[in-house]
């Protein structure tokens, strides 16, 4: 059985809000190391991989593997009934067909309980190959989100070029074209505004900006984002969590 407690419901609420628009029905695999979710988005262009390590919970117990088959939007709907600073407990018996969520306020004089019906979902699992990425960029999550949002005014696609000079985001559409270039830099005051580039060889890939804007909804989860790219392969975009991560594998657009 699974019993997992978070000191603040907001920790789970904001993660589910960040991924709910991309996903539908998915399995959350729970075991002694924590909760893991891997699911293709509806377009099959992005694979979302979420890991919530057991040490991120104030109490965690999962003696045998439990699979929570649910619709992520139903989970988001139920989580909206929790206040951000409520103590949140997830409970599910082995082979149960429901997930019990309880929300307690810190003075413990109010407790809500919701039972979310679980489903049997046979979802396609993709094997994520170990990839040596030619380029790794660590930058501010908010700056990436803002840069891509600006370029989405010009086009539905962005080209990202990384070389030793820096990282350039560019887009071209009917009304014209635009680009933003960032040099590697270290910001001593705000480390998150640093641009750190590790490069084994230059790389340039193009991506759909609509899906990218869904991905950067995770900017609320982490102050920095790690972008990894290599020619002809999906990009890996990672937002680190206090004990885990939200990772996206994003298929590029290819010159036909």
């Amino acid at each position: 059985m699974l019993e997992a407690k978070l000191d603040a419901a907001s920790q789970l609420k904001k993660i589910v809000e960040a991924i709910r628009d991309m996903l539908g029905e998915c399995n959350i695999e729970c075991n002694e190391t924590g909760l893991a979710l891997q699911s293709l988005d509806k377009s099959h262009i992005v694979l979302v991989s979420l890991l919530l390590g057991s040490d991120g919970f104030s109490e965690y117990r999962c003696d045998r593997g439990v699979t929570l088959g649910l619709n992520i939007n139903s989970l988001a709907t139920v989580l909206r009934c929790a206040n951000n600073d409520d103590i949140l407990t997830l409970r599910s018996e082995d082979r149960a067909n429901e997930l019990i969520l309880t929300f307690e306020d810190s003075k413990a004089d109010r407790i809500s309980e919701f039972n979310l019906r679980l489903m049997d979902i046979d979802q396609e699992y993709l094997a994520i190959p170990e990839t040596e990425y030619a380029a790794t960029v660590v930058m501010s999550a908010a700056v990436l989100q803002r840069t891509l949002r600006d370029l989405s005014a010009l086009s539905e696609a962005v080209t990202i070029e990384i070389d030793k000079e820096g990282i350039r985001f560019s887009a071209e559409g009917d009304l014209g074209k635009g680009s933003t270039h960032f040099k590697p830099c270290v910001d001593m005051e705000n480390a998150e505004n640093s641009i750190n580039i590790t490069l084994s060889e230059p790389v340039s890939l193009s991506f759909n900006l609509q899906y990218f804007s869904n991905i950067t909804k995770a900017s609320s989860l982490s102050s920095t984002v790690t972008l990894q790219m290599t020619a002809g392969m999906p990009a890996q975009i990672e937002y680190k969590l206090p004990s885990g991560h939200v990772r996206y594998y994003f298929a590029p657009k290819i010159e036909d």
Binding site: I45, L47, E124, L126, A127, P129, A157, M233, I254
Partner: peptide
């Protein structure tokens, strides 16, 4: 025009 390809082209289902 760039062609969008799906992840299935890169990652095979296990």
């Amino acid at each position: 025009e760039n062609l969008q390809i799906s992840l299935g082209e890169f990652f095979d289902s296990s």
